[in-house]
């Protein structure tokens, strides 16, 4: 089945089976292996990408249903701000918000969507938002710190 969509700002058209999940399409067909799959019950959030700017679980989306839509993955995130690193990526690095790195792409994509909606969040809001992103390494403490810092950076006045 033919599908046309934008992935990280690039027009992509492909002929794919309807059963292909977006996560597999990204990883296998587009060779964008930054999107990870850590469970089979749509819970862990390692696969979170943005669809038209909104965080969704790519392991629970059909690639064909993305026809006409715009998908951003961890590989394309920095490009959305025209920098080498998105402020949220930088914040994860600076705050030691990752260890093994497996949950990190989904965590960062989820965090960016959170930050857009919550310009001045509380710690509790960050923790509740992460209900759908599981990390086994960090105890979340530095992830929460990273998201608070990254959110601040995203909303900092230009030139700050």
């Amino acid at each position: 089945m033919k599908v046309e969509l934008s992935i990280n700002g690039r027009a992509v058209s492909a002929d794919i089976p309807p059963s292909l999940l977006l996560s597999d399409f990204l990883r296998e067909n587009c060779e964008l292996t930054g999107t990870h799959v850590g469970c089979d019950t749509s819970q862990c959030g390692a696969c979170v990408v943005h669809v038209d700017g909104v965080s969704m679980k790519s392991c629970t989306l059909l690639a064909v249903a993305m026809d006409g839509r715009s998908v951003t993955t961890i590989e394309g995130l920095a490009g959305t701000v025209g920098a080498e690193l998105h402020p949220m990526q930088e914040a994860f690095h600076v705050n030691h918000g990752l260890q093994c790195g497996f949950c990190t792409p989904g965590m960062i994509m989820s965090a960016v969507d959170f930050a857009k909606r919550h310009p001045s969040p509380t710690e509790g809001e960050v923790r509740r938002w992460l209900e759908g992103n599981i990390c086994r390494c960090t105890g979340y403490q530095n992830i929460v710190a990273a998201i608070l810092a990254g959110t601040k950076a995203m909303h900092a006045p230009q030139g700050d």
């Binding site: 819970q43 959030g45 965080s55 679980k57 629970t60 989820s110 938002w129 209900e131 759908g132 992103n133």
Partner: peptide, 9 residues
């Protein structure tokens, strides 16, 4: 319901 990514879809 669910988690944010689920609520978005």
């Amino acid at each position: 319901i669910g988690d944010p990514a689920v609520r978005h879809r």
